[in-house]
């Protein structure tokens, strides 16, 4: 089965991104395909490389980046939601005249069309939210 995943809540405050991560890992282990993970609302905050959680806690962004690398996952951060919340890649930072960027490895910024496209192409779209 081909899954599309939506993550609608930010890391640590909500469990949604943890649950999504565990689901994706389990689905891949069972031989399913995950066509894309789309981060929306505060979910975009999963994709900043500047988080420093306590050492004895899970490192949510690093977990996602590692999983993306291992399975060539497409981790997409919504650009409109990202701009509101201060998530920028190098190109966007340059284009908007900002002095820094913060997107983590394995994530990319793109538009809401990617969410709809994912819904069309996946057999099942699963939302992890509040």
């Amino acid at each position: 089965m081909k899954f599309g995943i939506v993550v609608n809540e930010g890391p640590y405050t909500h469990q949604a991104s943890d649950s999504a991560y565990n689901f994706v890992k389990a689905a891949l282990a069972k031989g399913h395909e995950v066509s894309r993970v789309f981060f929306y609302h505060d979910g975009v905050n999963v994709g900043t490389r500047l988080t420093i959680p306590p050492q004895d806690d899970r490192q949510i962004q690093e977990q996602w980046s590692a999983l993306a690398k291992e399975h060539e996952l497409d981790l997409v951060i919504c650009i409109a939601a990202a701009q509101r919340r201060g998530l920028l890649d190098e190109n966007e930072a340059k284009r908007q005249g900002k002095d820094a960027d913060n997107i983590a490895e394995g994530f990319r910024i793109s538009g809401l069309g990617q969410l709809i496209e994912m819904g069309i192409e996946a057999d099942r779209t699963i939302t992890f939210g509040d």
Partner: peptide, 19 residues
């Protein structure tokens, strides 16, 4: 919360996909 407003943004973008 921002959910309603960002939901509308999805709907408006999604309209281009003829679903």
């Amino acid at each position: 919360t921002i959910y309603a407003q960002e939901s509308l943004e999805v709907v408006l973008i999604g309209a281009a996909f003829d679903q």
